[in-house]
Amino acid sequence: MSTNTIISLKDIVVEFDGERVLEGLDLDIHDKEFVTFLGPSGCGKTTTLRIIGGFVAPKNGDVFFEGKRINDLPPYKRQVNTVFQRYALFPHLNVFENVAFGLKIQKLPEKEIRTRVLEMLELVNLKGFENRGVNQLSGGQQQRVAIARALVNHPKVLLLDEPLGALDLKLRKEMQIELKKIQQSLGITFIYVTHDQEEALTMSDTVVVMKDGDIQQIGTPEDIYNEPKNAFVADFIGESNIVPGIMKKDFLVEFAGRDFECVDSGFTPMEQVDVVVRPEDIKVVPTIAGHITGIVENVTFKGVHFEMEVLACGTHWLIHSTQSQAVGASIGMQIGPEDIHIMHKMEE
């Protein structure tokens, strides 16, 4: 895989006013990949993006682009383009002029500029909007202009800083699919920053989960969801129940007051671990058939499923089920071996 690495970050350290934002970040990004930096606000994902764009200079560490060190290259000489949060369109220019900005700086012939801009506007479904002022556009349209303005330059890498953050849910979902389509049809590397885990899972080839300036896990969306490396990732990617447990031996874990068969091995015997169970993996059964018995405390209708809070063994469990239970009812909970994810305790 390292043969087609396009961007490489080595031991990046960033400080703002003496506060560490990134602590020795290492990351390789491959060509034509859709990579997402995912994490809560303040985790350093936008800073990482701005380092690649050239807007933040790292205190320590190196940035490589196609094997060349580009630490000292100013933004306007880099072969990447950015779609900014809140778009940052030029308010004094119309749609056409906004998109043409980069091409005019490259001093391309007027005719080529025209063809390429119109092509790009068609790609983002803004045909016929050339002469509109950007302030006359809706949020979704402005966002498309921002994408077109960046893509028209044929960058090798497109950086996107929470570009869909200001849009409503339905539009956001549409744009997610559109962006993915554009990325695949143009064969450009996309580096996407978001705090929305669903967005990350929907679009990415690779997800980089970050927290406090550190990478927690890098993997495909399936990996990240099914095999979270630690309790933080498990909790951040989708909802999950995280309870303390003891790994008795390989394939046997104790939690919630009893032993469970599981599929994990390689832990020291009797190691204190975090046990992660996804809410949709807990089956609701009659009390006699369940591994654990609990009392339903709260039920919320979520559309596709019901979300239940169940008190069992002193812990509140989150359960997703298509069938509702009465509040106060006693239920049995069944958890299969594949649904139990064992994690080393986070050092904190």
């Binding site: 050239g54 933004p75 306007y76 900014f84 369109l89 030029f90 490259q106 303005r149």
Partner: peptide
């Protein structure tokens, strides 16, 4: 951000 966007699109400080 508008200034950064211009730099990002290849505009030198003078431009």
């Amino acid at each position: 951000r508008v200034i950064e966007a211009a730099q990002d699109l290849g505009a030198s400080p003078l431009k």
